[in-house]
């Protein structure tokens, strides 16, 4: 396949992924695997698992991470741009159009009632996403302490309307993880830092 054609097919493949995956995140992993490992053979299974691991530990939506990586592997920087633009474009167009009509839509009485119900549902969705992640978390002393600290931080800053940057707090927790690891290294001496 010529490079130009490859870039175009990357763009179209990710356009399809962007247009048809609802819910994002993990629903997307299965779809990506079917499309790029099984159907197109652009990646082998190990490489795919590697991407998932990278996507999970780097910031940003997994769809974007996967698009950038697969695009780069198959057609260089241009390929990664084409794939990333492809995966973002459907969302962008759909949401932009919705945003134009949303306020007018919400001013209908029954739509407003429906959305009061939906707001409650979103609280539940966020809660259940958090609980699901909590279930997958190893309950080590470090994890439990950081978790408790984060819950307290967030509740106190919002309930007492204190302003403190969440961004700094996330970085601070990363540094706690790093510090605990380094302390373990120091205490355990060379090679014992498990």
């Amino acid at each position: 396949m010529s490079k130009r054609k490859k870039i175009l097919s990357l763009f179209l493949a990710f356009l399809k992924i962007g247009a048809f995956t609802f819910g994002g995140g993990y629903a997307m992993i299965a779809l990506l695997e079917a499309e790029f490992v099984t159907k197109r053979g652009w990646l082998d299974k190990d490489e795919f698992l590697n991407i998932v691991a990278i996507a999970e530990s780097t910031p940003g939506p997994i769809a974007i991470n996967a698009a950038t990586y697969i695009g780069y592997k198959n057609a260089g920087v241009l390929g990664s741009v084409a794939a990333t633009v492809g995966v973002v474009l459907p969302s962008f167009v759909i949401i932009y159009v919705i945003s134009l009509f949303f306020d007018a839509f919400l001013s209908l009485a029954y739509v407003a009632y429906a959305f009061r119900g939906i707001q409650v549902c979103v609280v539940w969705l966020i809660l259940s996403a958090g609980l699901k992640m909590l279930k997958g978390l190893e309950k080590t002393p470090l994890n439990v302490c950081v978790l408790a600290l984060s819950v307290l931080f967030m509740l106190i800053t919002s309930l007492f309307a204190v302003r403190f940057s969440t961004v700094l707090f996330i970085l601070f927790c990363g540094c706690i993880g790093l510090a605990v690891y380094l302390l373990g290294l120091l205490r355990g001496g060379k090679g014992a830092g498990k």
Binding site: I126, L127, A129, G130, L131, M133, L134, L137, L142, N143, V144, V146, L147, A148, L149, S150, V151, L152, F153, M154, L155, S158, T166, F169, I170, C173, G174
Partner: peptide
């Protein structure tokens, strides 16, 4: 764990 705590809170 920080992110999970933030989501729950």
């Amino acid at each position: 764990p920080c992110v999970i705590g933030l989501i729950l809170a």
